[in-house]
């Protein structure tokens, strides 16, 4: 009886397999799917599942060990009405503006001059990239001693020049500048390299035509280089936006989990970390992450709109 049923079932399955081509296609591509599977499995375990869990967590009160307690929208209400979180959002945007504008400006000038150099270009490129691949924590520790109030190298130089010393780590604006200076130091070289790549794609003929028409270096920079570099500049603005809005390590190592005196160096991501992982308000921290998500989403959409307009 058993063998009889088998003989009936087996051909049926085979016929089905042949009749539906997508299934055999799946089988054909199976090895490829499997070979990329590890990434997706890991992403599922450490990306998707935590993200979905954080949605659930945002509506709970949880210290990380005990029972969760459902609190509805309370976490979101508390976060949105917290002046310290408001300050963190404001700080993030201030530090982003204070670092991005000087950084991109410097990078563009560096790239422009480096592009005109004939010799030892590569050595410069390597030097530009070095700050970017150095450990942020190590950089911050060094900057921490540079920013020292009495014997920091920066203040020693300032006082030697008879200028007033700056309270880099306790003054409200000085703290923001201190963080911005570190970001500028770290990312100017990287952006300069991106601009250089952009500059090299501008045809030489355009420059030559400009020179024949009697344009000065400044004219060439503002009338030829800048307009033709526009897409590259947009790219650096967008990547700086992403980096700037998720700024975390520099303020954390330099000023501590609460962003220093008066939370003046507190950024959005640092606030999230402080609340969730230093104060063990995991539900609240999850709600904060989702608010940050929507802030960044809004900004990304804005960026996208600007690019759309640029293309038209």
């Amino acid at each position: 009886m058993r063998s009889a049923t088998e003989t009936i079932v087996v051909p049926k399955r085979k016929v089905e397999r042949r009749a539906v081509p997508p299934r055999s296609k799946l089988r054909q591509y199976l090895p490829f799917y499997l070979s990329i599977a590890p990434y997706y499995v890991v992403f599922l375990a450490f990306g998707i599942i935590p993200i979905v869990f954080s949605i659930y967590l945002a509506f709970q009160r949880w210290d990380g060990i005990g029972r969760m307690q459902f609190v509805g929208l309370s976490n979101f209400v508390l976060a949105l009405t917290d002046p310290v979180f408001g300050k963190a959002v404001l700080n993030t945007f201030l530090i982003w503006i204070m670092s991005t504008i000087p950084m991109l400006f410097l990078a563009l000038i560096l790239a422009f001059f480096l592009d005109q150099r004939q010799r030892s270009k590569f050595a410069y490129q390597v030097c530009y990239f070095l700050p970017n691949i150095t450990s942020v924590v190590a950089i911050t520790l060094i900057f921490n001693s540079l920013f020292g109030p009495q014997y920091g190298l920066i203040n020693l130089t300032l006082t030697a020049l008879h200028l007033p010393a700056v309270q880099w780590l306790t003054g409200s604006w000085a703290m923001k500048w201190a963080i911005s200076i570190m970001v500028i130091w770290r990312w100017t070289g990287y952006n300069a390299l991106v601009y250089m790549a952009g500059l090299q794609s501008i045809p030489v003929e355009v420059y030559e035509a400009g020179r024949i028409d009697g344009a000065s270096t400044i004219d060439i920079f503002f009338r030829i280089t800048l307009p033709l570099l526009r897409p590259v500049i947009l790219f650096t603005v967008i990547s700086s936006t992403i980096g700037g809005l998720s700024l975390f390590t520099e303020p954390q190592v330099l000023l501590g989990n609460n962003g220093g005196v008066g939370n003046e160096g507190l950024t959005m991501s640092l606030y999230q970390y402080w609340q969730a992982f230093a104060s063990y308000h995991f539900g609240y921290g999850a709600a904060v992450s989702w608010i940050i998500f929507f802030i960044i989403l809004a900004f990304t959409l804005l960026n996208w709109k600007i690019i759309q307009r640029g293309q038209n």
């Binding site: 309370s74 306790t170 003054g171 005196v261 008066g262 308000h281």
Partner: peptide, 27 residues
């Protein structure tokens, strides 16, 4: 810290500390 480093009014600072503490307890 704010009172010491940024010259915040101590009574204002006390009130802010109370509000902050109450907020912390709700999280």
């Amino acid at each position: 810290n704010l009172v010491e480093f940024q010259k915040k009014n101590p009574d204002q600072a006390w009130n802010t500390a109370q509000q902050e503490a109450q907020r912390e307890l709700l999280r």
